[in-house]
């Protein structure tokens, strides 16, 4: 599974990653449409927020609009999405993005555009192991409480 691993200590806060993301994924110059978010934290340090492809949103989605690709990336099917935004607020890392011009939320698809655009080497595309989420493991709907323990 590929995911973008941030190294905020190297970030020079030029937001090239956000421009590249908005351009590549949304065909827009508006960086508020970027799936990666670079901000200053309260203490002045840089915070880079981007999806780690954990897949909790897959379980939260009431309409199975969110799924994992064979490569392991978590993606949203805009046609099936009913725009409830449950995934946005239940995301453990706050990495679901929304925009007034978009009905469905959007998120990092680990395409690597931001990594290429970063002039400081603050982003890395990592190929790592991942754990399937509860419902991914139990698509047939076996009774279990792993998920419940974590999210209920």
């Amino acid at each position: 599974m590929k995911y973008v691993k941030p190294h905020p200590e190297k970030c020079r806060f030029v937001q090239e990653c956000m421009r590249a993301c908005a351009q590549k994924t949304q065909k827009s110059d508006d960086i508020s449409l970027s799936s990666i978010l670079v901000t200053h934290a309260d203490d002045g340090t840089v915070d880079i927020n981007v999806c780690n492809q954990c897949g909790v949103c897959i379980d939260i989605c009431p309409v199975t609009a969110i799924s994992r690709t064979k490569a392991g990336t978590v993606v949203i099917n805009k046609n099936l999405c009913v725009g409830c935004y449950a995934c946005v607020e239940y995301c453990p890392t706050g990495s679901m993005r929304t925009h007034a011009s978009r009905l469905a939320p959007f998120k990092c698809i680990a395409c690597g555009a931001c990594v290429e655009a970063c002039p400081a080497g603050a982003l890395e595309l990592v190929d790592g192991e991942f754990e399937l989420s509860y419902l991914e493991q139990n698509q047939a709907g076996e009774t279990g409480d792993t998920f419940a323990k974590n999210y209920f």
């Binding site: 009913v82 449950a86 419902l135 009774t143 409480d145």
Partner: peptide, 22 residues
Amino acid sequence: FHQGIPDGCWYGCTLACAKTVE
């Protein structure tokens, strides 16, 4: 109750009280 599945009786209900026994 069958746990771990969004149990709203309409889309987007995260209070999800409509439980089932399977």
